[in-house]
Simulated assay, not measured.
Amino acid sequence: MNKILVVDDEKVILEVLEAYFEKEGWEVLFASNGIDALKIVKEQSPDLIILDLMLPDISGEEVCRLVRKDSNVPIIMLTAKSAEDDLINGIVIGADDYVTKPFSPREVVVRVKALLRRTQQMENGNQISFNHHKLRIDHVKREVRLNDAILALTPNEYRILITMASYPGRVYSRADLLEKLQEDGAYFEGYERNIDTHIKNLRKKMETDTRHPEFIITVFGMGYKFGGEKDESNA
């Protein structure tokens, strides 16, 4: 059973989401402030977090940053902010999706299902490695290692990486990669600028020199490609 943590101080929202989530057979956890939310994340390891930005103690953005230090759990932000820059900022700090208030509970359910699919039904296979085993991707564990150190990637960063790494050298436009995040036709309100943000975050985590990247390469005027060379042992 999937455990969904809802972090919001509005009782009506908690009650509505609880009713819809329980119909899906999900266990629902609640927190009305950021401190309690962080405690629940640590103690109960939810499968997904619905996180309001406006909390009574610490902001949702800060909760997201703190969660991302130790966890790749999918995060959907609830926000009354609709400006593109505000939404992109949520992606920068590690959110995987966002829903603007007021929202349709059915829409939230669709987005939760889409994120759970992307994190729980990854491609089959064992490990694949690149550049003399410098970079290793384990599809079963959904784990990426660089020089044996585990990279803390968000689900969407991971999805983009394995999409590109599956076909090294192939150029993906921003629209191509955005479509991958709209997996199985699930509704995802996104901007192509969001892809640039994910790519920037991937480079920070993966590249020794972000100005001369080894793995995530920009093809000017076209998009991005994966520059790693697959090890022969993977053939």
Rank of each mutant, 00 (worst) to 15 (best):
E214Q: 14
K230M: 12
R145D: 08
I4S: 03
A19Q: 13
V6A: 09
I128Y: 07
N201S: 13
H139R: 10
M222C: 00
V7K: 00
L38Q: 07
P46W: 08
S82I: 07
V99S: 09
M222K: 12
K81P: 00
T100M: 06
W26T: 05
T154Y: 04
T154Q: 02
D184N: 07
S32E: 09
T100C: 14
V171T: 14
V99M: 11
V28C: 12
K3G: 04
D184K: 04
I13P: 03
K101P: 13
K204D: 06
L202N: 06
D52F: 00
D138N: 15
Y98P: 07
L161M: 01
N126P: 07
N72D: 12
K69L: 13
E24V: 00
R117C: 04
D148C: 06
A114N: 12
T154N: 01
S71I: 00
E214K: 14
L116W: 14
I150T: 15
R106F: 06
F103L: 01
L51S: 00
Y20D: 12
K141R: 14
E10K: 12
E232D: 13
S45R: 10
N131P: 05
R211T: 10
I128T: 08
L38S: 05
I150K: 15
L14R: 12
M54K: 08
L151E: 04
E43Y: 04
V140E: 11
K42Y: 05
V171L: 04
K81H: 10
G125R: 09
R174F: 04
G221C: 06
Y172W: 13
I195H: 03
G185W: 03
K23N: 02
V12M: 10
S59M: 04
R170S: 03
F30C: 09
A165I: 00
L178V: 08
I75C: 03
E214W: 01
E207D: 13
D138S: 14
I199C: 03
S173E: 03
K141D: 09
H198K: 02
T119D: 11
E192A: 01
P155F: 12
Y20H: 12
L48W: 05
P102L: 03
E143V: 08
K205P: 09
H198D: 03
L202H: 02
T163D: 01
H133R: 15
E84Q: 12
G223P: 03
Y98W: 04
E207V: 08
A152E: 11
G169M: 07
M1R: 15
V140H: 15
V28G: 12
Q127S: 08
D176T: 07
E229Q: 14
T197A: 08
F215P: 04
T197E: 09
F220K: 12
G223M: 01
K230A: 06
P46C: 10
K134L: 07
L29K: 09
L78T: 06
N89E: 13
